[in-house]
Design a protein around this nucleic acid. Sequence first.
DNA 1: CTGAAAGCGCTTACAG
DNA 2: CTGAAAGCGCTTACAG
Lengths: 356, 356
Amino acid sequence: MRATVRDVAARAGVSPKTVSNVLNGTFRVSPATRQKVEEAVAALDYVPNLSARGLRNGRTGMIAVALPDLRMSYSAEMCHHFVVAAGKRGLHVQIEETAGGVDREVELMSRARAQLIDGLILNPVRLETTAVQRAVAMPPVVLIGEVDQPIVDHVWIDNTAAVREITQLLIDEGHRRIAIVGADNTATAQVRLIGFHQALEAAGISAEAALEIPSPDWHSTDAARWFGEFLDTHDVPEAVVCMTDTLAMGVISALHDHGLSVPGDVSVVGYDNITDSATMVPALTTIDFDKQKFAETAIDVLAARIADPNRPIMSVTIPHRIMRRASTRQRSTRKTGPRKTGTRKTGPRKPSTRKG
Amino acid sequence: MRATVRDVAARAGVSPKTVSNVLNGTFRVSPATRQKVEEAVAALDYVPNLSARGLRNGRTGMIAVALPDLRMSYSAEMCHHFVVAAGKRGLHVQIEETAGGVDREVELMSRARAQLIDGLILNPVRLETTAVQRAVAMPPVVLIGEVDQPIVDHVWIDNTAAVREITQLLIDEGHRRIAIVGADNTATAQVRLIGFHQALEAAGISAEAALEIPSPDWHSTDAARWFGEFLDTHDVPEAVVCMTDTLAMGVISALHDHGLSVPGDVSVVGYDNITDSATMVPALTTIDFDKQKFAETAIDVLAARIADPNRPIMSVTIPHRIMRRASTRQRSTRKTGPRKTGTRKTGPRKPSTRKG
DNA sequence: CTGAAAGCGCTTACAG
DNA sequence: CTGAAAGCGCTTACAG
């Protein structure tokens, strides 16, 4: 049978309270007593029961992190940083996926209230239907990502500015017919699309609905399929803004399959600066931000909220910057109209079967 | 204040036991009583306290999944499948990273014993130093990956066979001077290296230590750097076996930076069939397995172990297959000696700046 | 500096 | 089909 504080106390010849004091360091305990207790703990292989402690204290030392799709490289890197940042504060992380939508988000909130977790870091999927409602008794929650709900704490990147700036970069390089991939109705896409539109408008370029290409799932394979179909039926754009690096990977793949080179024929940019974006061929120009800092900030804000539910609501913006790599280039001649697929100088070919 | 079973019972005019029966469905309850209870639950916004339930039942409904490095795309995909598979059984997943090594693994075991988690799915990093010891009182654990410890349940891929087969594929295509990237002292690398050696030996090719290239971290950027340095100082191999798809991404990047085409100059294969491997340029030939099935099997085995700690130990091998894509090709002429870098027909050039 | 007691909220034998 | 009581293992006022 598992040892309990009583067993330890009995063996050490002290009361359970003293054992607790030694374990939690709440009060000063004489060295002799401390040693007796520690010997008993070791002898009995005692491990405190966290459920009991959680019931007593109302804290379990566990938080949840809920991301839209755990399969994304972006999710992988953020999970890592959340786990590490939480670990530094003695917290453990439960992961959840919000892909299911609003129901899932609501369920996560109740689970927080069911107190196996002390708080929740939530990346909601849709703006208009967020589970975060004034009406509900709220557990400690930090929103990350695009939804700016003034009801709860919030850590984010200024997505709109970031996409505006990277679109501006493409415009400065002489591109005018610019497509955007991942333009669907998620919160992320909507907020980033605004930045895209702002940059076009500032340059006097009118937005074209046909150049706003959805990709219902944001996996690279989906982007390759959807953007590939776009290439089959439309003029080749001069540049492509991708909502994420993972989408950019699919876009580059589709361009290669159509015999188009990056950035020779088409410039491509991404968003997130995932590790793999540096080893794409070509290396990807993208939006970079300090993911470790992002995670640590979110954990800090959540910990502060857990400690004091009544503190003022915070909103923290993590800085971003453009990570310039090889996937974009200056257009030599400034073209005003759309370029026809037929005007390409070389016909389609599979670069992957080119012989050395 | 939060409502408790007592509050619900009082409001519904029944005993706490009846409330519990309604919530857990243990005994039959009359429809009228059930409705009264459900109304009270709704009215009081009652959510059961999982710490209390965990203390009482000795189960929290939470399991932990510990992977070596959460940043990997492979980890991302596995996490997704574990969370989904666990969710189907009403379980939640706590994630941990074992990169820290054995201490971390031991700590995870005690945490399991501290009973905030009912069990643990563990991918240990090193063969010889596994935290899994006969001596320690073991919580329910399922090992995944390469370590075959007959002490606990085990779900894995036959790594040795998989790498042997994919190396064999390269040999069948006429490659003889084959490098392997990621050859370090982790359990995964060691077991896969054995398969590599087996294939070479069966073909009468002697292993060359210089062709076994380590990459202390298995990120694509590390592989690009380490394999790039290898290319700077060695003859170009005819083919490269990568311990993972992520490593392959870095290897392909380094080859491009050296003006070598894949598979024109060098064939490359990976392992894992991550989603992104289909959109690499060229699409990657790799080892595929059913990740959903892998995760579900591990969860099943763990659930069975939790239900019956004394059942016989299980070991399940998930089938694998070669996913043939564009990154390998038949060598037209069979060469016996190493090819010099200088013998390439085309000089180095950056494919990324090639114009269309 | 330490001990005896109460209670966190739940579920489960034990009675009725 | 339901009620009253006990107890999971911990920590914290309350006394000494």
